[in-house]
Design a protein around this nucleic acid. Structure first.
Length: 345
DNA sequence: CGCTTTTGACCGGCGC
DNA sequence: GCGCCGGTCAAAAGCG
């Protein structure tokens, strides 16, 4: 089954040598990490990251999270983009024209959480919380049907003619023995599904904080069982219950409870506005961490993500080829075309 | 006892 | 319309 709309324009990872003395600078200077194309004929050529480095490196030395220093996406630009993506999504047919620069993709390309200015924040979180109640109230159950209803799972009827809105998502891969990584937030597992072509199930987690609809999916690569693909959806509306924001991030502190080793690589979806601006982000916080990020910078303001990275940065870097062979969630992240190209190489 | 995990069933989206 | 699949629900079980 062809994956619908989760494709994204990423992914390659940098395996580079780093300098312990100046990890940030050395890592941000990585050239030519991306060399791939996306659906919609959007080409990613070779990028130099010196500009990025010069723009943000200044902030990395003061105990501030790397991600805190990143620019925020211009929301005004997101609106038309998201509408465009929505329209394409609703038409279901991918645009055949190569002239389109908008990949069919996109949830991962980060549909903003707020399609309309009137539906902002957690209240619009795809009904994971409040909407459940209202929908249940709208059920209007007949008594005679209630017995049958009870035999079934009383699931919420989703509003028809209302496309489910996805939160912006970002994913990254880590090499870890631990499936569910402690990122500073409390998560409750609400589901687990077998992944096609993979012996490893996919787990679904939800943030336990009231009103916070952030979700997280965790699965392992089918080919490399040591690789964990973690996908976050949404943004927390509260600070990390474990670590206050500002003292976390990917600075050199080494408080992770996990005894991982070596480096870790993260592959994060590329938002369209970044694609259009030809500003891919490659974040590397330490000599051992490569973050190949294509996610909106706002994502990296997420303490959860920062903490996660801080925690995982000692994990060894898997080969890009191995990562790209994944058949599970990776399909959400990497366009099939891209995967094929990668396999051929 | 309260919270979390497990797990089978269900729903909606999508391709054919 | 049908079937597959991803995502979610919620009761039951597990755990501290």
């Amino acid at each position: 089954m062809e994956k619908k709309g989760d494709d994204n324009c990423i992914v390659s990872m940098a395996n580079s040598t780093f300098s312990d003395e100046n990890p940030v600078a050395s890592n941000f200077a990585l050239p030519n990490i991306f060399d791939m194309s996306c659906e919609g004929d959007y080409k990613w050529g070779s990028f130099g990251f010196v500009d990025l480095l010069s723009a943000h490196n200044q902030d990395f030395g003061g105990g501030v999270s790397l991600f805190d220093s990143l620019p925020h996406p211009p929301p005004i630009n997101l609106q038309p983009l998201q509408q465009q993506q929505q329209e394409q999504h609703q038409h279901k047919k991918p645009l055949p024209s190569p002239a389109s620069t908008v990949p069919e993709s996109s949830e991962v390309l980060n549909n903003p959480a707020t399609p309309n200015s009137s539906s902002i924040s957690s209240s619009s979180n795809e009904g994971a919380n409040n909407e459940d109640q209202t929908n249940n109230n709208n059920k209007g159950g007949d008594d005679e049907e209630q017995d049958q209803e009870k035999t079934k799972k009383q699931l919420k009827p989703k509003k028809k003619n209302q496309k489910r809105q996805r939160e912006p998502r970002f994913a990254f891969m880590t090499k870890s023995e631990v499936d569910h990584l402690d990122d500073g937030y409390r998560w409750r597992k609400y589901g687990q599904k077998a992944v096609k072509n993979s012996p490893h199930p996919r787990s679904y987690y939800r943030c336990t904080s009231a009103g916070c609809g952030v979700k997280k999916r965790v699965e392992r690569s089918s080919d490399d069982q040591t690789i964990v693909v973690t996908t976050y959806e949404g943004q927390h509306i509260h600070p990390s219950p474990i670590t206050p924001r500002g003292n976390i991030g990917i600075m050199a502190s080494d408080s992770t409870p996990f005894g991982a080793t070596s480096a870790s690589s993260f592959v994060v979806p590329q938002p369209q506005y970044l694609l259009n601006q030809h500003h891919p982000f490659i974040y590397t916080s330490s000599p051992s961490l490569n973050i190949t990020s294509t996610t909106p910078p706002s994502t990296f303001n997420n303490p959860s993500f920062s903490r996660f990275i801080n925690q995982e940065r000692r994990i060894s870097t898997p080969s890009p080829a191995a990562l790209l062979r994944d058949h599970g969630l990776l399909q959400d992240i990497v366009p099939s075309q891209m995967r094929n190209e990668n396999d051929e190489n």
